[in-house]
Nucleic acid binder design. Structure first.
Lengths: 166, 166
DNA sequence: TGATAATGCCGAAAGCCATTCGGCAAAAGC
DNA sequence: GCTTTTGCCGAATGGCTTTCGGCATTATCA
């Protein structure tokens, strides 16, 4: 199954064993990963090497997937955020949507429950660029239609946070 | 307008002037922010201090909003990703939704076009936790109902990428 | 066009910080 | 009860960030 290579399925990722220090550490890093191990150590009552070992372990276990810079969509020329529900004639067609991964304006691709098969999160320069993208999607065989929801204001946007307790 | 403090509106963030090196630099950092200035300098044909100055400027200009660790939702006890469309009786009610910002399972809050006023991205431990959240939303006055779309598989999930050219 | 200011870069140096290592204590396994 | 494992610390090292002075190029303005 070549198509499954880059798929993220919950069943493939059993929860890791984390203690309270791990969880607060993850919360701190999910908020700001530029903090030094010394600073984190102060907040956790640990020495810098101890914090380092925990981070290293969390990385190896795949709990920390990556460290990335969060860019301001508007300031990099993509002020328009849109959620696109994609209707298909059959589930097999969803495979063809993976070509959209190569497009820089496409940020998320999910298969979802409900009346449409897939959900996209896309960020474009303007409505024209959104239209171009929708045109491209409709050109692929097996697509019935799309429903787009344009984000007017964004009040919160962050990544996954660790649960408070075990 | 106290309520606008944390709102992100495109009109408040005019695009920054970026050259090609800025864009490739942003692309690299959005992908992996652990790269050293020496490594980035090699890729950009710049010295480490030059890269540092650019990153510093991009941070000050708000182009780089933050550096964060991306956590594996499944491994931190939140395997269930759901998009929730929230219907309200009036637009004013959307203000009340901001209390949801405090909940760790809520990752995104947007006002959107279309039949419902708001769109949430939430990540919970299980369907029970999702139900608790929906119950909480419905308990707030002014809400008509919700439509939830559970993510079955996630094929792509990343942040904003800079545009290819000016 | 020519003087001046501003920008962006480099190389060198300083200092902080990540990273490694040895050793220890507590917990877990047998 | 002994052994193994785990997690932590303190010290030391090396790499990297960060600062600084100076230079070249470009922009500004007369």
């Amino acid at each position: 199954m070549k198509e499954d290579t880059n798929r993220i399925r919950p069943k493939h990722a059993p929860p890791a064993r984390l203690d309270d220090k791990d969880r607060t550490l993850l919360g701190l890093l999910a908020e700001d990963s530029t903090r030094s191990y010394a600073e984190l150590g102060n907040l956790l009552n640990l020495s810098p090497p101890a914090v380092h070992e925990r981070v290293k372990r969390l990385r190896q276990d795949g709990v920390i997937k990556a460290n990335v810079a969060i860019l301001n969509g508007a300031k990099i020329g993509r002020p328009l955020l849109t959620f696109v529900h994609v209707d298909t004639t059959s589930w097999a067609v969803t495979r063809h949507l993976l070509v959209l991964k190569e497009l820089p304006e496409v940020e998320e691709i999910h298969t979802v429950t409900g009346e449409s098969a897939m959900l996209l999160k896309v960020r474009t320069r303007d409505t024209q660029a959104l239209e171009d993208l929708l045109e491209r999607i409709h050109s692929i065989e097996g697509f019935k239609g799309t429903r787009s929801y344009i984000a007017l204001s964004t009040y919160l946007e962050r990544g996954p946070s660790p649960v408070a307790s075990e």
